[in-house]
Design a binder for these strands. Sequence first.
DNA 1: CTCCAGGGAAAGA
DNA 2: TCTTTCCATGGA
Length: 301
Amino acid sequence: MNSDQTFLIPVPSLFSFDECLWFLDRNYDDCLHVIKGKVLYKAVKIGAEPVLFSIEAESSFLKVTVLAGEASRENKDFLIAYIAEWFDMNRNIQPFYDLLKTDGQLAYMTETYEGFRLIGIYNIFEAICWCIVGQQINLSFAYKVKRRLVERYGEKVNYENESYYIFPDPEVLLQADLQELKSMQFSERKALYVIGIAKAFHEGTLDKEAIRMLPDFDSKVKVLTAHKGIGLWTANYALMKSLHESQAIPHGDIGLLQALANNGIIGDRSETDKIDALFSSFAGWESYLVFYLWRSLTVRI
DNA sequence: CTCCAGGGAAAGA
DNA sequence: TCTTTCCATGGA
């Protein structure tokens, strides 16, 4: 491999690439990245150019290799920022660990999941579509539906007998055929939501940077939930995963409730006062608390 | 067969 | 404002 196609990103303290790989490879069939051994592959669009890259750990660095597309200075700079955002590397999570260590039931997480970071979804349109696809159905089925959508409408990079898919742009999905989406086992309503959200992004009613600039968390939620298909759960999920908001709680999330029960925080799902008390003691780190609770869920195969 | 999955909108009370 | 119903499908 030509050396100028490769570069290193220093990792912060309390960062584990193995935990990144664990999260991205939980026996689910995610079509938007590939893991081979301990090497992670992903394709992204930089401007109009599809770029395929790999990431692997190398001592206290991540080694990134551009496999397809230009390894220009601009593209490398984009990838450095992209990966730092994807793995939430620019955040000091020590204060979160200090809070966890004071918690009677959750202190174990600082050791068991040491260095686990909030793995993001850079593309907020993708994050919202993923939420809509996954609403109220089991995750393995949701991943199947997402794969059908991406393989039909997304671009791909072919490299060494493997296809690496990129989530389709709003401009493509807003023209998607309703009947075709239904044939991919979208419910009619979910198909209409996805098309509607695609239109909103195309028209600029929804825009990642515009939402980021809003003055407070509640107004960001309000802008998102104004659109059909985005409820409170989806808004919080998108703000957590795509804008890396620290105070997002996907209220009512079934996995979150399960994790709270597993960890002895609640006896049953009606004990909302105990949930509120826990989250208020993690003020400013609600998103990380949710993510670590999700981390503690055992994954079905 | 019934119930429920990383919800949300629309209708009904 | 609160509660109920429907959605699509697969697995338990």
